[in-house]
């Protein structure tokens, strides 16, 4: 192999992206698990864990820039590295969503969410984490078909979000504390829904890496319906 050192560095960076992705996937799952168990200490640890995610993101980004500057990658290599730059940014933002859920948990200060809402939020976290896992797999395998299938799954999490929305706005409208709690529950759902959106962005990068063509993925119609999603969009 004519560029053994370069290839080794490229593969090491790919592994770094995968590791970051797995950290974020764990963070998403833990965010709602902590809510279910009402484990405030675990949510505080999750907030601290976000700093690890952030620092890894910026270290990997810096190393990608160094590789681009020193090795002048082209063709599939530059598409891969450009995608990796984008993907680490998306992952870091998804970590912020998990941290946001942990922060909400701490602010709720021991108030336990209704179990039907918790069920749905856990379901959303499972969907988002599963989508992320498959997106990372698609990236590793250079499989555009998997990436497209993951994008299609975004509708599923949007449907659950709408269920959470319907469940939370059905409460009393003159109780400020109830409204505040409903608001927090919606923010958790929103963060999970946005995390899944960012998984679709990662999948678009996978498709670009594999095919060399920018994937034009239609925005979920929910964002244009003027319903709950656009409130947070």
């Amino acid at each position: 192999m004519a560029r053994a050192l370069y290839d080794r560095e490229l593969h090491r960076l790919e592994n770094e992206v995968q590791t970051l992705g797995n950290m974020v996937r764990d963070a998403l799952r833990h965010s709602t698990d902590n809510l279910r168990r009402d484990d405030l200490a675990a949510s505080e640890r999750l907030m601290a864990f976000d700093r690890d995610i952030n620092s890894r993101r910026y270290r990997v980004e810096s190393e990608i820039m160094t590789l681009i500057a020193t090795q002048q990658p082209v063709a599939g290599d530059i598409r891969l590295l450009a995608a990796m730059l984008e993907v680490v940014g998306e992952l870091e933002r998804m970590g912020d969503y998990a941290k946001g859920i942990a922060t909400i948990h701490v602010r709720l200060a021991g108030w336990q969410m209704p179990s039907d809402v918790l069920d749905r939020l856990e379901h959303m976290a499972d969907i988002a984490a599963d989508m992320l896992g498959r997106a990372l797999d698609a990236f590793e395998r250079r499989d555009a078909a998997i990436a497209r299938a993951v994008i299609a799954d975004d509708d599923t999490i949007d449907a659950v979000f709408n269920e959470v929305f319907a469940a939370t706005i059905s409460g009393p409208v003159d109780d400020a504390r109830a409204i505040e709690r409903a608001n927090y529950m919606l923010w958790v759902a929103h963060n999970l829904e946005r995390a899944a959106d960012r998984v679709t962005n990662i999948c678009e990068r996978v498709i670009y890496t594999v095919t060399g063509r920018q994937a034009v993925v239609e925005e979920d119609e929910a964002t244009d319906r003027g319903d709950a999603v656009s409130v947070f969009g």
């Binding site: 290839d7 593969h11 090491r12 790919e14 592994n15 995968q18 590791t19 797995n22 950290m23 764990d26 963070a27 833990h30 864990f49 990372l136 590793e140 250079r142």
Partner: peptide, 12 residues
């Protein structure tokens, strides 16, 4: 929190 690493792309 467990962290998984994956093998390099050109290696199974």
């Amino acid at each position: 929190m467990t962290v998984q690493t994956r093998p390099p792309r050109l290696q199974s």
